[in-house]
Design a protein around this nucleic acid. Structure first.
Length: 542
RNA sequence: GGCCUCUUGGUCAAGCGGCUAAGACGCAGCCCUCUCACGGCUGAAUCAGGGGUUCGAUUCCCCUAGAGGCUACCA
């Protein structure tokens, strides 16, 4: 068989050769250790935490080595593409402050010298390499109908494969020149398949940056290189694009480990050097049956990256949480450098976890609390307002009309050496400070209604806004003492039966009247902001 | 079914042949305190199981089990 002739028959119009292409994509000039990696999402309409996780590892690796981080749109499966998905990907990246060095803008302009950064625009490149492979006998055209009897073909192939545990050669791999020509003359579309050189007995070993050496069966399947629409599925596109674009570390999900042998054979057929792989584990959740399962956009709202913005988590909190589960060194670094920017963390590739982590919202909340606790009242207010403008317009309006008041609320127990750590997302502030925005609703129980009423009546009588904390507290104490409360906590503990309660109990009653809750920030501060009239009203028990 | 990956407390995890097996979150208790917090202290809780190798295994090897993934003209 004259493969060159076959290649010409298949692609009479393809004049581009691999050599021409390589001239357009010269190797990058890199200092040693600089990582070139990428984020290669499919525009399917949402951003899954798993994709984001992988992107973030990739990004951190590039960042810490001063390398290049680029974005390549993998839109080779037109069926799955969703309108607006590209813009959404950029939006999420932008919200998290992820800076991409090379990419294609939404207007179609390539930033960087290795474009186009959108796979559907690289058809002629893929075809040129496909033609080259055919001309060297390493690939062949396949005319099998993908719809016709697909189920049977699949089943047949599968059983064949299982039974002899060997190879899976495509029926079209040995078509003669004339047969191909006949198909072509009939106007049939063709796909291109790899002519695997293996028999199913060979094994290969490859190195993974996270898992170490992995030994597996070498590929022995005539896999699809180009679909009948001329667009390559992932493996072929990956081999060509990452080689051309100078990627030197491929970060991808561990679900790709199994197909790595396929990729490696494609690299080899193409005459390319393999690229280092870093297969990161998937983010998981505990399922209903107690098993670990991949976090899913269908059942877990937190699987979608937009969720964190809807809830109002600071982007940095999410990033730090991810860093915390990706890279075991981060947490220790953070305790040593409490005020440093997360970007100063030396991301170690050897410290990337090999275990699929279970997503833990409690930990995220904790990280977030600590971040918000460091913010000033103004920062909190600005963030809250910004969040409200996007997700709760009515609240935003209120905040804008009551700027000064809302700002004061944001400043409660803030600043100073011992800031309160209670808020972890913007969406919770409204509920958290509901009693500051409207009359309080009783949330917690009053343990003793008559004591409650008695104390508040006495305390509220001729109520004047105290001018400082000491004044406020001594009044509480005085009233409590005259009613039979213990003002000495030790005395109270020694003899709890002898009193109606202690000062803490008295404060609890005031707090309940003012806020409806047993837990709230400093009462004196609340009173100051609420104002005398309002406090007095709330202290009056009907 | 076959192939691959993973397995230290509830969760994230340190550990890379030698200790009472770090730390964080969460939980419980105590202390501090003029209330709520913050903070401090203490506690409960882990090497999946079984074989080897070794003077000695959480650590190295094998087997088993469990979990996850792949097995498309999806990525």
């Amino acid at each position: 068989m004259d493969y060159k002739k076959l290649a010409e028959l298949l692609y009479p119009n393809v004049k581009l050769t691999p050599k021409d292409i390589f001239e357009k994509f010269p190797p990058r000039s890199l200092k040693s250790g600089e990582v070139v990696s990428r984020f290669a999402p499919s525009p399917t309409g949402f951003m899954h935490i798993g994709n984001f996780f992988q992107m973030f590892i990739s990004y951190s690796l590039c960042k810490v080595t001063n390398g290049v981080f680029f974005l390549r749109m993998e839109d080779t499966d037109a069926k799955r593409e969703v309108e607006g998905a590209r813009a959404f990907i950029y939006e999420i990246l932008d919200r998290f402050g992820i800076k991409v060095d090379e990419y294609q803008t939404l207007e179609g302009i390539d930033i960087g010298n290795y474009g186009p950064y959108v796979q559907s625009q690289r058809k002629e490149i893929y075809e040129a390499f496909a033609k080259d492979l055919v001309s060297r006998g390493k690939a062949f055209p396949c005319f099998c109908k993908k719809t016709e009897g697909k189920e049977e073909i699949l089943k047949e192939r599968e059983t064949k494969f299982i039974e002899n545990d060997e190879c899976e050669y495509d029926p079209c791999r040995d078509l003669t020149f004339e047969e191909v020509k006949t198909h072509l003359d009939n106007g049939e579309a063709f796909a291109i398949r790899l002519r695997t050189k293996n028999t199913g007995k060979e094994r290969i070993v490859f190195h993974d940056l996270i898992k170490g050496e992995i030994e597996a069966k070498a590929n022995a399947k005539d896999v699809i290189l180009l679909k009948s629409d001329g667009i390559p599925p992932y493996p072929f596109a990956h081999a060509i694009d990452d080689t051309l674009m100078g990627t030197n570390v491929v970060v991808r999900g561990e679900e790709y480990i199994s197909s790595t042998p396929v990729h490696l054979e494609i690299f080899e057929a193409l005459g390319f050097n393999p690229i280092a792989y870093c297969h990161n584990p998937s983010v998981c959740k505990i399922g209903e049956n107690g098993n670990r399962r991949k976090i899913s956009k269908r059942y877990d709202p937190e699987a979608k990256m937009l969720y964190y913005f809807e809830e109002g988590y600071p982007a940095v909190a999410v990033l730090e949480y991810l860093l915390n589960i990706v890279n075991s060194g981060f947490e220790m670094w953070r305790t040593k450098n409490p005020d440093a920017d997360w970007q100063d963390f030396k991301f170690g590739i050897n410290d990337i976890t090999a275990v699929a982590p279970i997503f833990d919202i409690a930990k995220l909340n904790d990280i977030s609390k600590n971040i918000i606790a460091k913010m000033s009242a103004e920062e909190v207010f600005d963030n809250w307002l910004k969040w409200a403008k996007e997700f709760k317009p009515a609240l935003a309006k209120y905040l804008e009309n009551n700027r000064e008041y809302a700002n004061k609320i944001c400043g409660i127990d803030r600043g100073g050496l011992k800031p309160r750590k209670d808020i972890y997302k913007w969406s919770m502030i409204e509920e958290y400070f509901s009693y500051m925005l409207a009359k309080p609703k009783l949330v917690d129980e009053i343990d003793n209604a008559s004591n409650y009423k008695e104390f508040l009546t006495a305390y509220g009588k001729d109520f004047k806004l105290p001018s400082d904390k000491d004044e406020w507290f001594s009044k509480v104490k005085t009233v409590a003492e005259t009613l039979g409360y213990a003002t000495d906590n030790k005395a109270y503990k020694a003899n709890p039966e002898g009193y109606k309660g202690n000062t803490a109990k008295a404060c609890e009653y005031i707090r309940l009247a003012l806020t409806g809750k047993k837990n709230s920030p400093d009462i004196y501060e609340l009173m100051t902001i609420l104002g005398e009239k309002e406090v007095k009203e709330r202290l009056t028990i009907k």
